[in-house]
Design a binder for these strands. Sequence first.
RNA 1: GGCGGCGUAGCCAAGUGGUAAGGCAGAGGUCUGCAAAAUCUCCAUCGGCGGUUCGACUCCGCCCGCCGCCUCCA
Length: 517
Amino acid sequence: MIRLFNSLTQQKEPFAPRDPGKAGIYACGPTVYNLVHIGNARPYVVFAVLRSWLRRRGLDVTLVTNITDVDDKIITKANAEGRPASAVAEEFTAAYVADTDRLGIARPDVEPLATETIPEIIDLVCQLVSSGHAYPAHGSVYFRVRSFDEYGKLSKQRIDQLEEGVRVDAEPGKADPLDFAVWKAAKPGEPAWDSPWGMGRPGWHIECSAMGLRYLGAGFDVHGGGRDLIFPHHENEIAQSEAAGLPFAKVWMHNGMIRSDGEKMAKSVGNIFLLREVLDRYEPAVVLMYFLTTHYRSPLEFSTEKLDEARAAYGRLADALAELEFRIANAARAATQGEWPDLSLRAETARMAFAEQMDDDLNTAAAIGELFALVGEAHRYLAEVDRGAAPLDSGALEAVREVLLDSLDALLVPAPGADGLVTSVGSVAGAAGDVCVTGDVAMMPAVRMAEDGRWDDVSLVYADRLECGDASYACVLRDHYRETRDWTSADRLRDEIQAAGFDVRDTPQGTQVMRKS
RNA sequence: GGCGGCGUAGCCAAGUGGUAAGGCAGAGGUCUGCAAAAUCUCCAUCGGCGGUUCGACUCCGCCCGCCGCCUCCA
């Protein structure tokens, strides 16, 4: 059973989709007036993972993420730069798509533009006006906050208290300072659309209501976004939708803020790190691990140390996967082979534990912990095998690998190898033959040469091949040196292989290489 | 001031009414031609003070510290 923490009720609730077998998620997207920073990327990742997990659980999921391409900030920027607002919006929409694409996770299913939702927005405003929840003034239309009894139910605010803290608002037509614009009269030069109240544009908040209702329908399942949007943005979305007689989202999910130097990362604070800057230095897999090793509701500190830790953690997973790959491929040469049910069983319990954690309010941090626990088990088992205390059960190893790979897939974290982290793993036993290769078939020629004892030929080509990223000849040669106890040559060759960008490990099965991460 | 949240080892981070996952770092051991990797052992009583309970880190109250929102903000 999937349970999600609902900000509305402030507790975890069993997830009960409106339409059995389906799930509709609306996650607030960017206002395109600037480049996305790492804080903006968190919800993008979180809700993509939520979608992924719900799909795993057999639901037909639709994830909608808006792009707000008409807004005060866009207009302000456009005016400052002396170009049309649409030019600013287009530039940063493209940048947003390009930057988030680099994460390598699938895009939302629907990415509507506010400017393509104007008719729906006007309809909604009309309904609010005709039902008395909103009133026109000076070409704008304001939502009458006090007309909606449940105002404040999400942010747990009471209207009276909000009233006390409210700041002086210069807008003349407002009946109450708390009221907010659902439609704004256009000033000269601003983007504007015709409406019953004259030329104007949507207020902030209203586009999300209109888009959510348009693509997911009333009473849709999940609405998500950053914690900082709870008030007023989400509160107002609820008010203007439900006052119009349209039940809004059933479950509200809010991700914690990313902090930098203990403070929320925000453009206004100036402590932002752009997503593209981070991706220039860290692989997508590492950035995703960084996000997912902390629960989505917790605040997350941004620092290169944390990113480096995420890289180390991912490296441990990558190493384990490479090791499994290597052992499975070399199974035929194990001293003894046989069943080892303990490990197969452990793989299965890990799979279930992972799923339970994911079901429990998308606890990716704990779920990843289960993966590491499994990795530890596998390594311990392999040590037993090397000590001759257990037979090699390649089926069990495959089961472990499968769980690891499948879990990473659920988390949208690319498996090592998929992004070039591990390109080839191989080994050659000794001059006598008894050869095993994994990964790259390009290794085969090297292996054949080795089998034939053509060491001169291998020596001739290994350096060039190494330069091209094929370490197979060097591996074969190094095994030969080790076989003949020529440690000087073996060590020198290891240095060369490492210099070519590989990690080198000596194993009972031979030299093992992995492309350095 | 109002509302919400957080405070777990050197750092990061899960978690539970019955004596604390996992990652990083550190110390020592094993393995290894050397190395790397791995593995083993060690390293917290859960901000503070009370209360409820057979028993709390987990529930309640108060206090301290930090953060978010109340204005644009993922």
